[in-house]
Simulated scan of single mutants.
Amino acid sequence: MERVSRMVSERPVVIFSRSTCGMCHTVQALFTDFGVHPAVHELDEIPRGREIEQALSRLGCSPSVPAVFIGGELVGGVSEVMSLHLNRSLIPLLKNVGALWV
């Protein structure tokens, strides 16, 4: 859990992903299209990725990826991110944490 906390404090937007996950790629593309450069951790490509995935599950991420953190807080997965986007809350949230300057 401590490792996850340390990783999510690196940048305003942090995404835990798997390189083979289509929904993970979709979420990453959404942020990139906005001009946001999230820290992306591909759990199938990093040491102890399985442990991190288990910690994300304990935090309530189901499925465990994609897991999106904004401003150090767990937002959730693709459904939660898209809900924020559709109700026009995502961009203001990104601005508030310094991830977007438009």
Rank of each mutant, 00 (worst) to 15 (best):
M1N: 13
R3G: 02
R3C: 04
V4I: 11
S5A: 14
M7Y: 09
M7E: 12
V8W: 03
V8N: 05
S9V: 03
S9Q: 05
E10Y: 10
E10A: 13
V13A: 09
V13M: 08
V14I: 04
V14G: 01
V14F: 01
I15P: 00
I15N: 02
S17E: 00
R18K: 14
S19E: 01
T20Y: 14
T20H: 12
T20G: 10
C21G: 08
C21D: 10
C21S: 10
G22S: 15
G22I: 10
G22W: 08
M23D: 13
C24V: 06
T26N: 10
T26Y: 09
A29L: 15
F31W: 06
D33L: 12
D33T: 11
D33E: 11
D33F: 08
F34P: 07
F34Y: 15
V36R: 07
V36Y: 07
H37C: 10
H37F: 10
P38V: 01
A39L: 12
H41K: 14
H41Y: 15
L43K: 05
D44I: 00
D44Y: 02
D44L: 00
E45L: 12
E45F: 07
E45D: 12
P47N: 07
P47Q: 08
G49D: 03
R50V: 07
I52Q: 00
I52F: 05
I52H: 00
A55V: 08
A55K: 10
L56F: 02
L56I: 00
L56M: 05
S57M: 08
R58K: 11
L59E: 00
L59N: 03
G60S: 01
C61G: 01
S62P: 09
P63F: 03
V65F: 07
P66Q: 01
P66F: 00
A67F: 00
A67H: 06
A67Q: 08
A67K: 04
A67R: 04
I70S: 05
I70N: 01
I70Q: 05
G71H: 06
G72T: 07
G72W: 03
E73N: 02
L74A: 08
V75A: 07
G77P: 09
G77C: 11
V78E: 14
V78G: 13
V78Q: 13
V78K: 13
S79D: 13
E80N: 01
V81W: 10
S83P: 01
S83C: 04
S83M: 09
H85A: 15
H85C: 11
H85N: 15
L86W: 15
N87G: 07
R88S: 14
R88M: 10
S89K: 14
S89P: 09
L90S: 02
L90Q: 03
P92R: 09
P92V: 04
P92W: 05
L94P: 03
K95I: 08
N96W: 11
N96Q: 15
V97T: 08
G98T: 10
G98V: 07
G98I: 06
A99K: 11
A99F: 12
W101L: 14
V102C: 15
V102F: 14
V102G: 15
